[in-house]
Design a protein around this nucleic acid. Structure first.
Lengths: 151, 151
DNA sequence: CATCATGTTACTTGTCTTGTTACGATCCTG
DNA sequence: CAGGATCGTAACAAGACAAGTAACATGATG
């Protein structure tokens, strides 16, 4: 568990959901992600609240994709899961008295802000159908060879 | 302890060391950073190995700055402390079998690589004397008002 | 040799995502 | 309508990693 993999996992799930076009239970999704259903529900709650997926209880229930992949960007997903911290590094003190430390925070903070802005711009510029298309390319490239991912 | 603050702390220390131009003990530095001497030695070990500072044992010992701030970039310091992980997010699986997940990893990874490259470029473009100069500006701007940071 | 200071190891703490268990609510089906 | 399928949620344990802490060895100075 070295990284926060929620964004990665949700992208993975959404594209798979688009592929079968039928409701998937938290259990099925959990197996796909090598985790367990509670983690799935927890993480996908944000996607539901933002209207990207819908969940239905009871027999025959599960998760369904509501909006087309072409209308969901990576940034949308990132925001839906709560915009978790992107960086592992940061200042020792957010409001330091020391003027030297203030100058350090500004220098580091400026660089990080630029990097964050670039990353978010990049996430905003890619829609999920783009990744799905990349997948299709990979798939045809492999021709008839084995493709395994319990989808 | 939300973030890895080693880079921030080391920048702070190096600039202060340049200001007094005399050896500082781990204890003094620890007080400045609001931590304890072991953490200081642990973190500064990398700076010593890379030749930015020198440490001397025994009576009158402590840490001294070896190279001028103008010859040390933020990137140098980042590398000296062991290039810790920059991002808090990442893929769920580095070597996934699933082609969809592979496509997701590539999309996310590309964006992150770009952001990382930008950040490292920014770190490489700033030398420590630049931050020290920013500090001086702040200091004179404050005229004769109180400046507190047990340096 | 006594003291100061670093070097190093081992262990604890704090924080955050994940993993897991438990239980309640809801909905289909026989 | 009883029973099972499924989500919702709370509570708590596990794992990872930087940071905090304690203990002790090593080396330098006076």
């Amino acid at each position: 568990m070295r990284n926060d993999s929620r964004l990665s996992r949700m992208l993975h799930v959404l594209i798979h959901m688009d592929k079968h076009q039928q409701s998937a239970t938290s259990d099925m999704i959990a197996k796909m992600l090598n985790t367990n259903p509670v983690v799935v529900r927890r993480t996908m709650a944000g996607l539901r609240e933002q209207g990207y997926v819908r969940s239905e209880k009871g027999h025959g229930g599960g998760w369904t994709l509501v909006r087309p992949l072409s209308e969901i960007t990576l940034l949308d997903v990132y925001r839906a899961i709560g915009e978790p911290h992107l960086f592992a590094i940061g200042p020792a003190d957010d409001q330091p008295q020391c003027l030297v430390e203030q100058a350090v925070n500004i220098a580091l903070g400026d660089a990080m802000k630029e990097a964050q802005a670039l990353l978010l711009r990049r996430l905003d510029s890619v829609t999920l159908d783009k990744i799905a298309a990349d997948f299709e390319t990979k798939l045809t490239a492999l021709s008839a060879t084995s493709y395994s991912c319990a989808s």
